[in-house]
Design a protein around this nucleic acid. Structure first.
Length: 735
DNA sequence: GGTGTGTGGTAGC
DNA sequence: ATCGCTACCACACACC
């Protein structure tokens, strides 16, 4: 759910009454403060110093500034020539590189305090930032620091909700190995005692892991568990788990597709940028089903030819089975079966439903073959997933129908798979064309047709609009794509944010918010983020388990980082904790159910696993073990920060689109003025004190009244009052 | 104005 | 009528 900025909780930044910019305001304020401090000066301790304060500091930068000021020093917040000391605590990776080149000492805030205490400028060597020392002393000091940290005293073992813990966990009924491991888990959980936890020597645990890790045979062979005094966590080997996770593979295949295109650069002609834009979107229909089917024997294929098929991890149809359908063919869909539906439910709808098994190997091969067929079409391909991509065709195609027919036939011959193709003058138009044509479709949509064709679809038909966005849209009176096309842009932007609002509006008009980024052959693809997570089959009840699990994930992240040859300068840790009032039924067998999510992150320099304690500490301090009620799910995300972080793009900047959009807006406003639909008494709105809220309510009501006829109808409409949090708040305020 | 950090939504089968 | 894995985007807010 989008959080709407509550007008009364947001205090605007003070503005200079003379209308100067905030920067001027700040400089003047700083000069004034310097002056004041100079008057209160105690001594000339720092008189020759220009001290730069950087980032978050403990004690706060404000305090340090006053301290330095009253001792005769000058403080700056940005680097400039003449700076004599840099004070900071935690350098981001970019700053690290920047500062490690400078000859100016980079010191901990403790330096200032100590100098004041001893009333003299001390030698700086003792206070150099550990991060920078690390560089020189080859990590020795860092290791000591890490090991010296005690587990947070807030952590206590407490009552564990065993009812929840011992709930049967079924990853894959066919896998005895998994079953065995999970049984072990249950037994282990039961024998846990408080005193055992207290005895763990974390230093030793880490040491053991590092020893095994350095053998490099397999980075995730966690032998430390066998050496550990308490055996706990061998049931969760992240890599083994990922081997049988379809979503893990799905994500990996996308990377593989990218790498395939890098290694086999498309040889097709270069699209003509001056010609009318033309993009193709191509997608394999129900990829998993078709691929699994293609791996069957000819005899079986004949047997299943026109039957409802699906791919599911399990064929267990028992009452409690919650295995879900990864993909189903169009025959099955005619029975009302959908992707993601529980197998049990699906079989109630169609008893003849044939269940095919996952075959990850085949999917991977078919994906490669699929891409192989696309290499000679154009030089610009942008993969979306293992079975789906965009291709730029501007100025390359003469007969569109013929081109699509031939391409589909070619892929069918090579892979046996049926595809759908869409052509359009933007990515989203092509994408929608594919969607409209499925299955086995080939459609070309012109700019003009687009708006008409999807007018009557619900908003979630558009890519980028999922459940949450659709709910919020409904609450402001937008249900169909047509509604969105005629919506007020400023209302959208107020609700969804400036950029997002514009993007949504653009999408409804067939204007891209997605940027076409073709793979550059031969160039190493660098992602901005690497992530490792496991949210299934995890039941943690102790601090030790939690720590070991996170360590496992970090090890896996590190392995991944090395495989991809990427640098990581920040680690983000996501922790899901079972919500206080979570319905236990919601946690599917092994799933996590309703959770509260927390995140913490830290900048890193060096090996990922060395930041084990640092990343854990802030997040652990927010939870106590009693909050961790049995099922905790953890993901670790390493991030390589992009060079340009903020870009405000995606505004309509091409003249035609801008005019088109203005015209639409005018039409709508005109229509609104000429209508007699506004019949309800809306005078109460004027009683709302806060101007922002008042204006917003007016806009929202304006739209609602158009939809519903009059104010009474608006108020009666359930969704309007219940679904959206901010609407509830606002209505509550004046009703 | 800029940076750092935490939150949340979406797609793909 | 819900969860799962990964990469990415947009945004709020704190802090300077």
């Amino acid at each position: 759910m989008y959080r709407i900025k509550a007008a009364n909780t947001y205090e605007k930044r003070p503005e200079d009454p003379r209308g100067n910019s905030y920067v001027d305001y700040r400089h003047k304020k700083q000069d004034k403060l310097d002056e004041q401090l100079n008057q209160q000066k105690i001594d000339d301790l720092f008189v020759d110093c220009v001290i730069m304060l950087n980032g978050r500091l403990e004690p706060s930068a404000n305090y340090l500034r006053q301290l330095i000021g009253t001792h005769g020093g000058k403080v700056v917040f940005q680097y400039m020539p003449g700076v004599t000391h840099i004070i900071c605590q935690n350098l981001s990776a970019s700053k690290f590189i920047q500062y490690s080149k400078k000859t100016i000492p980079v010191l901990l805030p403790k330096y200032i305090l100590s100098c004041v205490e001893h009333k003299t400028l001390l030698d700086t060597t003792e206070f150099i930032l550990p991060q920078l020392l690390l560089e020189q002393t080859q990590q020795t000091q860092q290791t000591q620091q890490t090991q010296a940290q005690e587990p947070s005293p807030e952590f206590r073992m407490s009552q564990i909700n065993f009812n929840y813990v011992v709930e049967p966990v079924v990853l894959d009924p066919d896998s005895e190995r998994i079953q065995q491991k999970l049984q072990n888990l249950e037994q282990q959980i039961k024998i846990y005692q408080l005193n055992e936890i207290a005895q763990i020597d974390y230093g030793e645990v880490i040491q053991n892991v590092q020893n095994t890790d350095s053998q490099k045979s397999s980075p995730t062979q966690l032998q430390y568990i066998q050496n550990s005094p308490v055996k706990t966590h061998d049931k969760i080997n992240v890599r083994e788990y990922h081997e049988q996770s379809r979503l893990h593979h799905l994500s990996q295949w996308k990377v593989e597709a990218q790498q395939f295109l890098i290694q086999n650069p498309p040889q097709g002609p270069k699209p003509n940028d001056t010609a009318a834009p033309l993009f193709m979107h191509i997608d394999i229909d129900c990829f998993f089903v078709q691929a699994s089917y293609s791996a069957l024997s000819a005899q079986q294929q004949l047997l299943y030819q026109s039957l409802p098929l699906c791919v599911c991890s399990s064929s267990n149809t028992g009452q409690n089975s919650t295995a879900d359908i990864a993909s189903c063919n169009y025959v099955a869909r005619s029975y009302g079966i959908r992707n993601g539906m529980w197998l049990r439910t699906a079989q109630e709808k169609c008893k003849e439903l044939v269940i095919l098994k996952y075959d990850f190997q085949v999917y991977s091969e078919q994906s490669k073959r699929f891409y192989q067929n696309l290499l000679d079409i154009s030089s610009q391909i942008m993969p979306v997933s293992c079975d789906e991509c965009y291709i730029k065709l501007s100025g390359l195609i003469s007969n569109k129908e013929e081109f699509m027919t031939e391409l589909k036939a070619k892929i069918k011959r090579s892979t046996g798979l049926i595809t759908s193709i869409g052509l359009g003058s933007s990515l989203i138009q092509a994408r929608i064309a594919t969607k409209l044509g499925k299955p086995n479709g080939q459609i070309h949509i012109g700019k003009e047709q687009f708006i008409e064709l999807i007018k009557h679809k619900t908003v979630d038909f558009l890519p980028g609009i999922g459940q949450e966005t659709a709910t919020v849209m409904n609450s402001i009176g937008i249900y169909s794509v047509g509604d969105l096309q005629h919506a007020q842009l400023n209302l959208l932007q107020q609700t969804f944010g400036e950029i997002k609002g514009q993007q949504l509006f653009n999408s409804s008009l067939g204007i891209d918010s997605l940027v076409f980024k073709p793979i550059q052959g031969g160039q190493q693809q660098k992602s901005k983020q690497l992530q490792v997570s496991q949210n299934f089959g995890v039941r943690l009840t102790t601090l030790l388990q939690l720590k070991q699990f996170i360590y496992n994930l970090l090890v896996e992240l590190q392995a991944k980082q090395k495989e991809r040859n990427q640098q990581i300068n920040r680690i983000i840790l996501h922790l899901n904790v079972v919500a206080k009032n979570a319905n236990p039924q919601w946690a599917k067998n092994g799933g996590c159910g309703q959770c509260e999510k927390t995140t913490s992150s830290c900048s890193i320099q060096g090996e990922v696993t060395e930041y084990y304690e640092q990343i854990l500490e802030p997040i652990l301090s927010q939870f106590r073990v009693e909050d961790v009620r049995g099922a905790d799910i953890v993901g670790v995300c390493g991030e390589q920060q992009p060079e340009i972080i903020r870009n405000k793009t995606n505004k309509i900047n091409d003249r035609t689109s801008l005019n088109q959009f203005k015209e639409l807006l005018n039409n709508f406003q005109e229509q609104q003025q000429n209508t007699n639909l506004i019949t309800g008494d809306i005078s109460q709105i004027d009683q709302i004190q806060d101007e922002n809220v008042r204006e917003k309510v007016k806009q929202v009501i304006g739209l609602q009244i158009i939809k519903r006829g009059n104010l009474d109808d608006v108020l009666k409409y359930d969704d309007f009052q219940q679904k959206n949090y901010y609407m509830q708040q606002m209505w509550g305020e004046f009703l």
